[in-house]
Nucleic acid binder design. Structure first.
Lengths: 191, 191
DNA sequence: CTATCGCTAGAACGATCACTCTAGTCGGGA
DNA sequence: TCCCGACTAGAGTGATCGTTCTAGCGATAG
């Protein structure tokens, strides 16, 4: 059993992913984490905002690991891109269209209201982009090209999640995966 | 001066776009709309949820008009795609990274909690996709191809908005526009 | 043994939430 | 002239929000 502090961060991340930042209450977090309410403010004196920031960064670290995990198992980066979108689609369906990006909802909610949380999201996106860029770079793409490709991939993925959750359909993930794979193909063919 | 009812819907749409559904209070809506609080429940007996649904649909109708407006002015659909993303980038910067998609934040927030609002979002996305597909169809793409392309474009746009707002950078819109334009190029070259 | 400290535990606070209710204003048709 | 429905107006409801507070538990060090 993870520590109380860890359970609180995990619960925060889970709740905020599914219902966003505003709709998630601190009492609800304590309940899901099976943590005494007092511990919440003991570990996180910064309150809900600190809780949000740590949840964002923790989710970011967790999902960052998926990038090499998927790409290293694929025959080539283009296949890796397709696998990544396909895997996202599977996971989305299995969670009944609840588990998409862990931070996108919060990112949109707070971008114009909390600079602290906005920066936490920006930091995580940055890390994901770097991780993706590394993979394309390793496949022979020029650094700038690799980064643009990773950024385009993340954009397509995030947007496809939005449409997929609203329409309860994985088609957006598939077509977004296709145009990203095509872009990767084109960028890597030049090598 | 628009009617009280119209002002209420407009204010709801504006507030929910910037800060989301949960963070928007009904009192805040009445205040921004300069409407008496009682009128709010007179016109919208369904309360906040009805208000949200109408705001989503109204925003959807407004933004739907942008699609032909941009594409019909462009020399060809591929240029239209680029113009669309570039225009989105300009508008985003001008609003200090506040005005991106009017319904994406709400869509992510409510997809797993309010079926009414989820369906309103799905309906609007559907209309946008149809409007986009029509343009690609008119340029010679097969119906299924045109629809996939429009769906991929919307996905790329929505995701780019997420990253752009969090990082306060328009680069995501530019690279997402590029891979979408390339996909459109490829799909229409076959004609 | 006792003092200390990290942590548990939850009651209580004021603010704010969505919403309801009643009273009053106003204009147009009978 | 009277009346009735549409709309205005805001006080008041109970519930829930994030946060603070005090009290106490249990292990460890002196």
């Amino acid at each position: 059993m993870p520590s109380t502090r860890e359970r609180i961060v995990e619960a925060s991340a889970e709740l905020m992913r599914r219902q966003g930042y505003s709709a998630t209450g601190v009492k609800q977090i304590a309940e899901m984490a099976r943590a005494p309410f007092g511990s919440l403010y003991h570990f996180f004196p910064g309150g809900k905002e600190q809780l949000g920031a740590e949840a964002i960064r923790a989710s970011g670290t967790l999902y960052e690991l998926l990038i090499p995990a998927v790409f290293d198992q694929a025959a080539d980066p283009v296949t890796g891109v397709r696998d990544f979108f396909a895997g996202a689609a599977t996971h989305l369906v299995e969670s009944d269209y609840a588990d998409a990006c862990p931070i996108a909802t919060v990112a949109l909610e707070v971008s114009s209201s909390s600079e602290t949380l906005r920066l936490a999201c920006a930091e995580v996106f940055e890390r994901w982009i770097n991780a993706g860029a590394e993979r394309f770079s390793a496949a022979g793409a020029a650094p700038a090209t690799a980064r643009d490709l990773a950024l385009a991939m993340l954009s397509a993925l995030e947007g496809a999640f939005v449409i997929a959750r609203a329409t309860r359909d994985t088609k957006p993930l598939l077509v977004a995966g296709e145009i990203t794979a095509a872009a990767a193909q084109a960028a890597l063919r030049a090598v």
